[in-house]
Design a protein around this nucleic acid. Sequence first.
DNA 1: TCGGTGTGGTAGC
DNA 2: ATCGCTACCACACCGA
Length: 841
Amino acid sequence: MASGSYSTEFGGGLWRGHGDYMRDKNDKIKAQLDQRYAGDMKSNIFQGVIARIDGHTELNDFEIKRLITQHGGQMEQYDVRMFPSEKRVTHLVADNLAMGNQRWRHYRDKPTSKFVVVKSSWVAESVAAGRRLREADFKPDILHHQGQGSLKGFLQLPKAQPQPQPPPVVKDNPPGGAAGGGVEEDGSARIEIDDDAAPPVPPPPAAAAAAGAGAGAGAGAAGASRAVKPRPSRGRLDATDPGFVDNFFKSSRLHFIGTFRNRVKAKYTFDAFVPVPPPSQLSLLSMSTARRTILYLHVDFDAFFTSVALRRHPEFRNEPVAIAHGSARPNSSSEISSCNYIARQRGVTKGSFMSSALEKCPELKVLPYYFDDFESTSEVLFEHLMQLSRRIQPLSCDEAVVQLVGDDECADVQQKAKQLRDSVHSKTECWVSIGIGDSPLIARVAASYAKPDKGSSGVVLVEPKQSKDFMATVPLKAIPGIGPVMLEKLQSLGCNTCEDVRRQRTETDLVTTLGKVMGSRVWAAAHGIDNRQIGSTEASGAGTGAQKSISVAVNWGVRLSTDTDLDKFLASIAADASKRLEERGFLTQAVTFKLMQRHPEAPVEPPKFLGHGMCNELTKRHVLPESTASAHRIQMALRTIWDDEFAKKCPIHEIRGLTAMLGKLKRKTSPAPAPAPAPAPAPAAARGGGGGRGPPMLTDLQEGFLRNTRRKVNMQQGSKGAHIGGPRDVESIDLAAEEDAECAPAVPPSAFSPRVSVAAGATAGGSGGAACAQPSVPPARRYHHLVDVYVKQGSSALRFQTAAEEAIMGCETLDDIRRDMPYDDDVWRAVLSLAKRLGRS
DNA sequence: TCGGTGTGGTAGC
DNA sequence: ATCGCTACCACACCGA
């Protein structure tokens, strides 16, 4: 690999080749742990205690471990597939929350086991008391309840997706008992694990009952939600649950990574890179410019998530460890997002399913995501980097490029890199790898050679003169921008390494095969040249300039049945999109809706649990007449696209995911006078502002709607004469509206067809329309979700539901309505007619 | 020729 | 259980 023609070493003292690397590292870590945990030994109150933590605990496990080890106890190793009775564990620390069902059952049913189960407060309070408190006083509450009802409820068995409608193969719904083969397999597999671990005893009756309890589950759940914790709606996991989107984003690693760069940019002020023309043009430059030394450091944490998580689980330092949701079950489809190098050696790869990772490495330890820790750890990195230079391009949460300009900054760069490594490690217990070169490209490739599995010492410097030679041996797939597709194209040309390209291919070849840009880029890269505009977005991989788009995507857990489901879901997406706009102070003027539809040949349920499986994608963009940050308008745009473009192609139950992409971003210029943070019960407030020349008292929504319908309004105002603003009284307006409504058919429906509908059972009286009932809202305003106003103009359509709803909600009388919605006869008419039907006049 | 749109590829763990 | 995101670039295609 390392051809030796470039310099990789600095001193070589602290870090040796990789063979020694692990041993070294382990020694160091042991020393650190000793120092950290044994060194500040505080007491011996936990002498003889061998503890293990199970499930989530109130006191975080890091703390628990620290306390126990500092006070004379030990931690036992963690293996979720085994019950601790088989080990020498004396104490199991477990709180009530989020604990696996079967394990609780086990603990409850086998109280005679050698270990004792205590709450985490036992640890904390014992330390506080300076003595070991009685374990019996810290028994988890749930173990007190022998009633199976509450336990069963707590178990909240999968109650799989209703899989509501037409799907011909309804193969779930375990409550029915006669589950299909696939599910049965799953279920029995799970139980087997339980049985294996638990001594000879057959599955306890509770398990059998739970497994088959369809009808009972409801009652149990109700009881449990009182006893344990109020669960929002059914314990079911899907996109129709309120809060699903929020929750999803809180748990999504890809969301975390994807939004990180912009978060960092918002947090720090970095300087732009000094622009440097590609080396090929150096000859054109004045000597002084050409001579100025410029180097790039590419800095990158090793196995970032895993390294961070290991801080909380130091006992796994020497084990294969991966980060994923869920636990190490052999049939899990949870994705491995990161793993340490021990696990990688055994064949675990990021992105693979838990199941296949466990096949390769059955002893794999799985740790959860600690997003807050990831965030704070990366903060440490960026703060260190800023001491080298403020010309930093953040690439991701664990990765950045630093530009060093001039002899001062470039002096002793290896020493600086090494110190950076050590310093970051001493603060974070995580190592970074560093690549140094005269272009971001070289630095980046060098950093990949600095990784622990590449036999280097953590820093690789490529002397500028050596760039070309260095690149020769580099496999093409190590070049940024070359992914699976590009690589395949290159392989079809007989190229796997830069050397191949250099020997066998001309730039013209590559341009023909890869396209104009990538072709010449790859050709240049193979020759050691980074022909991207240094400092530009492409070179840094990160937008230097203003952000161009914001997107909100949910392609997991999306299983919708009804139009209402879809509306709710669009609303959450739009709300999130709007929130992100506000946070960044942006307005958008273009909404793109991307929808994933189950591929006709794909199975209804994909291999990945609640995943999207193979899909067709539909994309459609809708340009708004004016910039906005309003959730309502975004939602309307999405709904419009759905109605016009997608609905006819995609039955709702085939939706597997959707994305709202906001483009044409503009900075919000308005002074943002009052944050108005509590808009919930507020009437359709008349916010003048807006910036437009609109009528003074229009709401944001109304203004937008006005613009959307301007053409039509203009046309119709001519013939209709004065519109609603006049001093006519309510009755006559109402009548006029009705009359107009009669005339409506005269207008071609395709041109304009307002339609007002009242959701079934959702009248103010609330006859069964429970979903709409909003008990805390006074009756006069209880028109939530009642109104569907569609306004069609040619090919574009708008759904007016939310706007009308908002307007009505703020209105006590028809006069109020008139005041709030003076802008459009047709909508007026629709609203008035609705209001009349609802007995509001 | 230009700008807009839809599609596809890539990167991070 | 499980959390398959985000933001950017490049390109082909379309219509004016």
